[in-house]
């Protein structure tokens, strides 16, 4: 039983990176597909379209930072905290990256015929990014209190 708890603790350390990366893969994939499709229908502004499609990659970076913050020698008393925090922040990063990808795809689709609304069109993607940042920051703060951490 003890080894299972420790195993979950190790999983909790890596979950933010893994789930964040999965979300970024899906999000960037969706937005990237929309960007390449839109390239067929525009005469200029190619770089901007492809650039927007990279926005959901930030969740992977947040996940890596949380994993580095959580990284410690896992013990029975720290494993439950690491697992539950790692899973929850990982899920938040996963869903935010997927939804941000959809927002970026919509922004790309809108911008191709109305380039003047580019700034407004990516606002929903920026708002979704804000929620990912909330989850990231509070995971760092709360994670500091788990035994074995810098604050623990």
């Amino acid at each position: 039983m003890e080894s299972v708890i420790v195993l979950l603790g190790w999983a909790g350390i890596f979950l933010p990176t893994a789930l964040g990366a999965i979300g970024s893969i899906i999000g960037c994939g969706r937005a990237g597909q929309a960007a390449t499709g839109a390239l067929l229908d525009v005469e200029s502004g190619y770089g901007r379209l492809v650039g927007v499609s990279a926005l959901p990659s930030s969740q992977s970076i947040y996940g890596i930072v949380v994993t580095m913050q959580f990284n410690r020698a896992v013990a029975v008393d720290s494993a439950p905290g690491l697992f539950s925090l790692g899973l929850l922040v990982g899920l938040a990063l996963l869903f935010s990256a997927i939804m941000q990808g959809s927002c970026c795809a919509s922004a790309i689709n809108t911008t191709k015929s109305k380039p003047e609304v580019f700034g407004l069109a990516i606002a929903p993607a920026a708002i979704v990014e804000g929620f990912a940042v909330f989850a990231f920051i509070f995971a760092i703060i709360v994670g500091g209190g788990i035994p074995g951490g810098t604050a623990g």
Binding site: Q33, A34, G37, L40, D41, A105
Partner: peptide, 10 residues
């Protein structure tokens, strides 16, 4: 690939 196809249509 719906994202590609929809975005490629005017």
């Amino acid at each position: 690939n719906y994202y590609w196809l929809v975005a490629s249509l005017p």
